[in-house]
Design a protein around this nucleic acid. Structure first.
Lengths: 354, 354
DNA sequence: CACACTGCCCAAAACGTTTTTGTACGTCAA
DNA sequence: TTGACGTACAAAAACGTTTTGGGCAGTGTG
């Protein structure tokens, strides 16, 4: 059930036992004032009927002793911790590799900031089901980013009646009622593909991804629908889960009827396309136009290539913020509505032909 | 004591009370197996002497019912939560604005990943002392990033005997024993300033920062020492806390004996320098060389300027990782040692004259 | 004088675990 | 037959709060 020895239970009470004398608790304040702990608790939280003088005396004693109620004990009785969980990272052979992707960084920055504004804390846990970590940290609700096929977290949350919000629609049946924040790919994909066409592209390709999540699935579907509607052939290539995406890019660009414009489903794939193009001596944008789904408004990783890439820009920060807002709404009993976050096309040199 | 109504206490037990039937606890497993909760607890954790058959029966029942021990109750008795706190963000008029800076993103990514590997969770809290948030979320220890002058968190942690690790040396006296992770600015600053000199700079300036932390303080001191040792004049400009750094950059570059090379103390200042240079019609690198302290190995924000900036690159990710390692060492009773993380100069076009 | 009411406070029960300290029942040796 | 000992389980005491349900004066009202 646990891996690597469960730090919660190993070394007992080192915090409290440290340095001669345990943490000061409400008991100490009661003793110092000669009152009962009930009265102290009430005085500090403005609950019962306490004489103003007494209240002030308690306040002062608490301040003087540096008393702070133990959040854990508080949480036990209230049933709430004020902590929101954020589960990120596809389950790959290298779980958590995804953490470093700018999308998660931007998403969690937006989520954290919004959580703090609403007086919640946000804790990031791996969505790797092997690590029971997410079940060992107390939380009031969980945000699952890009739930995959047969997502075990989603299933576990449902069983435990843990409030859940997802970023990206769950693809398994039975989770239709889970509140979800989504990017408006429907318009976004059309916009970026139209942009490539309008910029002069004849054969538009797609560098897709191996992840079984709604984003990948929907992007690919929308791409194919766009091709069909435009009466154009579809060129899709997908790197295997552990394959260098450059290989997939090379495959996509090596055929006799190679596409003259490719949209990559994330920024890493954009880099892969640039590398592949360089290796094949294709000039950007003249021989090959490149656009990518960019996962945040911070542009990362392309500086070295000196080829600013046209991007379909997801607002990851806002997605994070909306997810937190939605989860808090659920926790507070408000009925949440599905939220669509628009994404925008930012045209840059990689699709601007002379 | 609390702001905005303390969500922990507002809506009571909505989690448990949700949907007819509370969370299943150890009691339910006991009832299902006809055993006592003691035996169930022992059986699940391999503690007491339990008949193998009974143990298996308990395991099966727990699995079937989907039982997971409540982390909060667990934490209450064990005194540990398995949660590490990360306090970021200078206290400015816009607290948390700093969260979006790439430094924090990279730092917390490294910290989160290391924490998870060691089976801890990481929760990010604002270092804004007005929000009592950090005191309301349970944690075993706290990482304080860039403690400022008279840092209230540091003081509070000391009083409450909360294990603390800082990223960047605390500058107040009395905290010499706090374990600290630092960047090796001593070598780094010398290296980048030498690089500017060797690249042909005559008058090297510094665009400093308003924050009262060790990084700013040390950088400025090392810069002045370098100037003194090289027998050169020092040009230092510091934007006010809420001022647009471009203004400070313009001041620095507008004098009659303006510097022909400037090192900026963060990436934002680098952008400010580029903007100011453009406004003053100074070409980079010919009229002005620019270098910046870069806060992570991901290059952000300069793409639009088409001027890759030479950087003194801090390894924020590793700083985060080392901080977590150090904090866990403290928690587990190991004596931690000070850690220095090297930083490296990456030369790019902004200091490469034709 | 009885009664209700109010203002102030307290004891005890909860919250869901883990840990400590038993207890009942055998078995084995003397 | 008895005491000692090991095995398998259970009762109860923690952990530090908040909440519940009073209690005990003093004060006004009939």
């Amino acid at each position: 059930m646990t891996r690597k020895g469960d730090p919660i239970m190993t070394s007992r009470k080192s915090t409290r036992a440290g340095e001669a004398g345990r943490r000061i608790g409400i008991r100490d304040v009661a003793q110092a004032t000669g009152l009962s702990i009930t009265t102290v608790s009430h005085a500090l939280h403005g609950k019962g009927q306490i004489a103003p003088a007494t209240r002030e005396r308690v306040r002062r004693a608490a301040e003087e002793l540096g008393y702070r109620p133990d959040p854990v004990a508080r949480g036990l009785v209230s049933g709430r911790t004020g902590i929101l969980g954020l589960a990120v990272g596809h389950m790959s052979d290298r779980p958590w590799a995804g953490t470093y992707r700018p999308y998660y960084a931007a998403f969690s920055a937006g989520a954290t900031m919004t959580a703090v504004e609403r007086d919640y804390a946000l804790v990031v846990v791996p969505s790797d089901p092997a690590s029971g970590l997410w079940a060992r940290v107390p939380m009031d609700g969980l945000i699952i980013v890009d739930p995959v096929r047969e997502d075990p977290l989603l299933a576990d949350c449902a069983r435990r009646r843990m409030p859940v919000v997802t970023d990206g629609r769950p693809i398994d049946p039975g989770y239709e009622d889970v509140p979800t924040v989504e990017s408006d790919l429907e318009h976004g994909m059309a916009e970026v593909l139209d942009h490539l066409r309008d910029s002069g592209a004849r054969r538009v390709g797609l560098l897709s991804g191996p992840e079984p999540d709604a984003y990948t699935q929907d992007s690919e579907r929308l791409y194919r629908e766009w091709c069909a509607a435009a009466g154009r052939p579809a060129f899709v290539e997908t790197p295997a889960a552990s394959e260098d995406p450059v290989e997939a890019a090379l495959r996509l660009l090596s055929g006799p009827d190679r596409p003259d414009a490719v949209h990559g489903l994330n920024e890493t794939y954009g880099q892969a396309l640039v590398i592949a193009a360089r290796r094949l001596s294709l000039r950007i944008p003249d021989d090959l136009m490149v656009s990518v789904m960019r996962e945040s408004d911070q542009s990362c990783g392309t500086e070295d290539w000196d080829v600013p890439l046209t991007a379909l820009s997801l607002d990851a920060r806002r997605l994070g913020a909306e997810s937190v807002t939605m989860l808090i709404d659920v926790l507070e009993g408000k009925a949440p509505r599905h939220v669509m976050v628009p994404c925008t096309v930012v045209a840059r040199r990689s699709t601007r032909r002379a």
